[in-house]
Design a protein around this nucleic acid. Structure first.
Lengths: 206, 206
DNA sequence: TTTCCTATCTATCGATTGATAGGCTCTTTA
DNA sequence: TAAAGAGCCTATCAATCGATAGATAGGAAA
């Protein structure tokens, strides 16, 4: 009853999942349609029955990825919206665990490999999935006085969101963020972002 | 007298410069040897007279790039080593202005496109050019009490260096860091890194 | 049963890629 | 002046890429 229906969706879904892992790990250009098909256990032309072309597959991978992150972040933020520090920590930890292997690579591929219309669509998804949720934390923090005056310090919600995201993107050229390390790392990022590396005693604010 | 000597080095040097711009902007795989040759005004096989293969050219581009940064950062750090905030600002600003278009892409290419031995060599250059100089700032800051206790806060020199570097790498999906904005941006990064986004009044250190 | 559609296959195309072979033309050098 | 080599060229290779054409099998719908 649902075998044939599973069959229809199984290939499509599996292709997206396999392509997701490969694209995010190797980059768009480094992944051939043949490699994707091989891992899926199908031949390369079969891919073109499910997707118009390679680019369309990549776009679907991105949209799926971004949508999942959007759902997760909004849930986290709604759950622990009372404490900004805990909220930032939870968000940081979740992204650290679930983010693509190389976010820098992903951004580059979006920027350089996609067409203008695809890029615009993905940009919209990106803003809804990452920028707005995280910026909302800082917006609330500003209102409630837990974040410095944006006019004096430049700590507007959106720049602050990218501040955090750039910390997380982490091009660390040595340690791989293991799962048990991720928690410490998220705590470190959150602490630095909120309180800075300088001791509290010294005030040299200009 | 030096025409023929210029001729020898001119091509070699021009190839490296052109390749640098293309590789850093488009990524290793997205740049063909023909494209590099075309912009240099030579034919593609001529490239192979100057470099063993595409990978060797990329390695030379990286080493040149890293070496220039090493020289510049050490000079900056030696000049303004008395004030850690000013030192961090100068370093941040310089990297922000002179860094490759997409550092994330560069890291990815080093990791995925190079062989094991090349990777090790570039890693050594990277550490000498970025990691050690920046970490030395924090090391000094810790000794002089301008940086929090590493044991309590996790603010060890090397993780702190990567903290700053990740801020600078900036995957900002919107604003391009213009030259006049870069100064404000560097100031913002430095301020946040040292003093954090939270107001000074509230102490919720755990 | 017959028709149609979906999913897959084999075979192949044209384009592009990195790389090599071999020849030409200068300049340097012995 | 003759030999050597650097720098660049044309021509071309084998591999790989994304994509298409056309056939086949099997279930769904008529």
């Amino acid at each position: 009853m649902n075998n044939q229906f599973d069959h229809i969706n199984n290939s499509h879904q599996k292709i997206v999942e396999v392509a997701r892992d490969l694209f995010m790990k190797m980059g768009y250009r480094a992944v051939s349609t043949r490699k994707i098909a091989e891992i899926c256990g199908i031949t390369q032309p079969t891919l073109y029955h499910h997707f118009k072309n390679k680019k369309a597959l990549y776009v679907e991978v991105l949209k799926t990825e971004l949508f999942k992150m959007q759902i997760a972040l909004r849930k986290i933020i709604n759950t622990c919206s009372d404490d900004i520090e805990e909220c930032l920590f939870q968000v940081t930890y979740h992204i650290l665990i679930n983010k693509p292997t190389s976010m820098g690579q992903m951004f580059h591929d979006i920027e350089k490999e996609l067409g203008e219309e695809d890029k615009k669509e993905i940009d919209k998804c990106w803003i809804e999935s990452y920028q707005l949720p995280i910026a909302s934390i800082f917006e609330r923090g500003i209102k409630e006085g837990q974040i410095r005056n944006p006019v004096e310090f430049g700590s507007y919600p959106i720049p602050s969101a990218y501040l955090l995201l750039n910390l997380i993107s982490s091009n660390n050229r040595e340690d791989q963020s293991q799962e048990h390390i991720a928690k410490e790392q998220a705590r470190f990022y959150t602490n630095v972002l909120l309180y800075g590396l300088a001791p509290l005693s010294k005030e040299k604010r200009k």
